[in-house]
């Protein structure tokens, strides 16, 4: 048991070794993996996933789960597409279209997060049930609003954003960096961060200690919604399309990234750095298996197995820690 606890205590070390070891092995095995081009590719694939997974980490730290992130991405993509597309003609100026488009996307994400948080914190509903319902509700709403049609003709400056650099660094990297820094600061340097850990570790104790539990829970879901909205901005710009099915298949990757990173499924334990490496590992896995020319079905089996393995390890470690 002591050994198990030792491993758990060095969770961050474990996921870093896993990423580095996997990277080195794939550098030898997967042709084209070890190139500058592919490194950039990995970075761009990582960013939206990382941002959404950071929001999910906040929620899981409070022992909750946000299954609605996929529908938030879809809904925000549609809202942004509607505001920005020249087909709808809401704005004459490209700048105004982008400004209002991005603002609407962020507002939409925060609003859905508020609904989730309110239902979980104030109504006492299980997070799984609430977010599963809002996932279905907002996915359906996105499809109904667009009649299943994509929204095109977005402003040039918006769709060029992924390829535009400031001081030699592409804009999405700044966006990712900003989210990581804000998430890290809030979690590690503010009272709000302490409340999140306290709520996840033991709600009753947190309440007795004076933590505003409902407020904390609402805010983590709002943060998750905002992160999903930022992810939607990157996806929408990259695909040059506002789509009602955007992000439909990323839930496994998002939750997988957080769980593989080592954030406890039972709340109270987890770090932004762990999620970073969890998301990196998911991205490495997808990229390398693709380069190895494995079939789609095998890739799904491998990814599913890895996430299941991580979840089992997570649970075993949690139980062993409680036993010691």
């Amino acid at each position: 048991m002591g050994a198990m606890a030792g491993i758990s205590n060095s969770k961050s070390g474990f996921i870093i070794y896993l990423c580095v070891g996997y990277y080195l092995i794939m550098a030898v095995l997967a042709p084209g993996f070890f190139t500058l081009n592919n490194t950039m590719n990995l970075l761009f694939n990582l960013l939206p996933l990382l941002i959404i997974a950071i929001g999910q980490t906040y929620v899981m730290l409070t022992a909750g789960i946000d299954l609605s992130v996929t529908s938030i991405v879809a809904m925000c993509s549609v809202l942004g597409g509607f505001m920005m597309s020249s087909d709808t003609g809401l704005f004459q100026s490209e700048f105004a279209a982008i400004l209002f488009g991005i603002s609407t996307m962020l507002l939409g994400g925060a609003l859905i997060g508020t609904i989730n948080g309110f239902a979980v914190a104030k109504l006492g509903m299980p997070a799984f049930m609430v977010t599963l319902t809002t996932m279905i509700l907002f996915s359906g709403l996105a499809i109904w609003l667009t009649q299943s049609q994509n929204l095109y003709n977005l402003p040039e400056a918006f769709i060029d954003m992924p390829y535009t650099s400031l001081l030699g660094i592409p804009i999405p990297v700044y966006v990712g960096l900003l989210v990581v820094l804000v998430a890290y600061f809030l979690l590690n340097r503010t009272i709000f961060g302490e409340w999140i850990y306290a709520v996840g570790a033991n709600t009753k104790t947190a309440k007795i200690s004076g933590v505003n539990v409902p407020k904390t829970i609402v805010l983590v879901y709002v943060f998750s919604g905002l992160c999903a909205a930022v992810g939607a901005i990157l996806y929408t710009a990259r695909l040059e399309t506002g789509s009602p099915v955007m992000g439909q298949n990323i839930l496994l990757d998002v939750i997988g990234a957080v769980v593989i990173g080592g954030t406890s499924l039972f709340g109270g334990k987890g770090k932004i750095a762990w999620t970073f490496f969890g998301a990196l590992f998911m991205t490495l896995l997808d990229n390398s298996l693709n380069l190895l020319n494995l079939s789609f079905f095998i890739i799904m089996v491998v990814k599913g197995s890895v996430i299941l393995g991580a979840a089992i390890l997570n649970t075993v470690l949690e139980k062993s820690l409680k036993a010691t």
């Binding site: 042709p31 084209g32 993996f33 190139t35 081009n37 592919n38 590719n41 761009f44 694939n45 996806y235 990259r238 695909l239 399309t241 789509s243 099915v245 955007m246 992000g247 439909q248 298949n249 990323i250 997808d286 990229n287 693709n290 380069l291 020319n293 079939s295 789609f296 799904m300």
Partner: peptide
């Protein structure tokens, strides 16, 4: 040849084609 299937996900298809490009 290399093959990739995107499971009806446009973003995944974009990433897979970029992987092809990396592979040369």
């Amino acid at each position: 040849y290399l093959e990739a299937v995107a499971n009806s996900d446009a973003n995944r298809q974009f990433e897979q084609v970029n992987n092809f490009i990396s592979r040369g």
